[in-house]
């Protein structure tokens, strides 16, 4: 049940739809990707109306749903070739190899996806969505259930996408994820968007920041990533802000 959901997303920007479980995030994504018809209201995606020009919408978008939608029985490479062929792209094999490389899956290319870890599946899932470079990408809770490293890899991929001019809409229930990635953030609560703006705007809703001195200890995430990363801690997370308000 959605009421009063109204937003625009600019090309090359990342828009985060933030909300708790059951807020209606997935419903929004399903309507945007023409899987569900809205009872009322109008939605344009890349200039196409989702109700009357759904074919045009599907040409423009790629959906990465809440659960990695990959074919377990096929290999990673076969999954990518399949999607490229369905998108009618020239030279699906080369496109698949390029994406495997980009998402560091080349070594696992010819293994069946059922043997992949959760993070690898998610990376493959996102790689499949990028086949054919659609101008609009929907990511429905892309990092739910991922370990911290895979989460950083996904974040990196999302930032790269926006850098190439792709419009990214992502839903998340993690506040830090929205803070890290998004240019604009909307908070969806019980089917209604209650806040919509840049990160600075919602922050202004609260009293101004006051300065406190806090001893800056590494977070458990910093420690974890430093200990487990293969290249001796080079891949540590950006230190999180310790400023409190």
């Amino acid at each position: 049940m959605l009421r009063g959901v109204d937003f625009e997303v600019a090309r090359g920007s990342i828009f985060a739809l933030l909300g708790s479980n059951g807020a209606g995030k997935t419903t929004v994504v399903r309507i945007l990707s023409t899987l569900l018809k809205a009872d009322a209201g109008s939605v344009d995606v890349n200039g196409f109306d989702v109700a009357t020009q759904s074919a045009g919408v599907r040409e423009s978008i790629s959906l990465t749903g809440q659960f990695a939608a990959v074919d377990e029985i096929l290999t990673g490479r076969e999954n990518l070739v399949l999607v490229a062929r369905l998108r009618n792209l020239k030279d699906p094999g080369r496109i698949a190899d390029g994406l495997l490389e980009r998402f560091s899956l080349t070594d696992a290319a010819n293994r069946r996806v059922s043997e992949y870890s959760g993070g690898m599946r998610r990376r493959l899932d996102i790689a499949m969505s990028l086949s054919g470079n659609p101008p609009v990408i929907f990511l429905d809770e892309p990092t739910t259930g991922l370990d911290p490293q895979s989460r950083l890899e996904v974040w990196q991929a999302v930032k790269e996408l926006a850098g190439r001019g792709t419009m990214v809409l992502l839903t998340t229930q993690y506040l830090d994820e929205a803070e890290q990635l998004a240019d604009r953030i909307a908070i969806l609560h019980k089917g209604t968007i209650i806040v919509n703006g840049t990160l600075a705007e919602p922050q202004q809703l609260l009293p101004p920041a006051k300065v406190e001195y806090v001893e800056k200890k590494p977070t458990l995430e910093n420690v974890f990533l430093a200990l487990v990363s293969e290249d001796g801690g080079g891949r540590s997370a950006e230190p999180t802000s310790q400023e409190s308000r």
Partner: peptide, 13 residues
Amino acid sequence: KSGIFERFQSMPI
């Protein structure tokens, strides 16, 4: 169940 059905349905096919 796996979501691949929805992936296909959201593609230009």
